[in-house]
């Protein structure tokens, strides 16, 4: 399966860089942030790949790494019964990435969740609001520098 994916990607998009890795039978491909929408389009629409099911979009905060965040996409192809992980690095100073909600509509809420939890902005997103936390909340809870117990006073309580 790995060869097919790489072949199809290279055939459609000749000048992108793709790195692959494998762990516990899961194939991961790492692409550059600017190519993400193109790659996803190929993965979804190519007649041999057909990754039509976008399981999940999430991010990882590496805390002290140079590219602080990695955005992770989990895809599944019903045709090939194959699961693929796509990753793209995002740096804190330039904390945005293009949205893939135009490719899979299900990515919409996942991206909103990532925005809420990590503060990564998704360019051209149709409705980028916070998913869980109140709109007035200032922090992004899943960043590593946010304490588990929260910041006192950041969320108001009703009066007694």
């Amino acid at each position: 399966m790995k060869e097919i994916i790489l072949n199809q990607l290279n055939a459609s998009l000749p000048n992108i860089q793709v790195e692959t890795s494998e762990f516990k039978d899961e194939l991961t491909i790492q692409v550059q942030k600017k190519d993400i929408v193109e790659v996803c389009k190929v993965l979804k629409n190519d007649s041999e790949l057909k990754f039509i099911h976008c399981i999940d979009v999430t991010a990882i905060d590496w805390a002290r790494r140079k590219d602080r965040f990695t955005v992770v996409y989990h895809l599944f192809s019903l045709k090939n019964k194959f699961q693929l992980v796509v990753k793209a690095d995002v740096d804190e100073s330039d904390c945005n990435i293009d949205t893939v909600s135009s490719v899979w509509r299900s990515a919409n809420w996942h991206e909103r969740e990532v925005y809420d939890m990590y503060g990564i902005t998704f360019n051209f997103h149709p409705d980028l609001r916070r998913m869980y936390m109140p709109e007035e909340f200032e922090y992004h809870p899943l960043r590593k520098d946010f304490p588990v117990l929260g910041i006192p006073g950041s969320l108001p309580l009703p009066k007694k």
Binding site: P141, P147, V148, L149, G150, L157, P158, K160
Partner: peptide
Amino acid sequence: YRSYPVVQGIDQFLP
């Protein structure tokens, strides 16, 4: 739930 979004006991705002 000792975590950021959970009120630690509703007696903080209700009798």
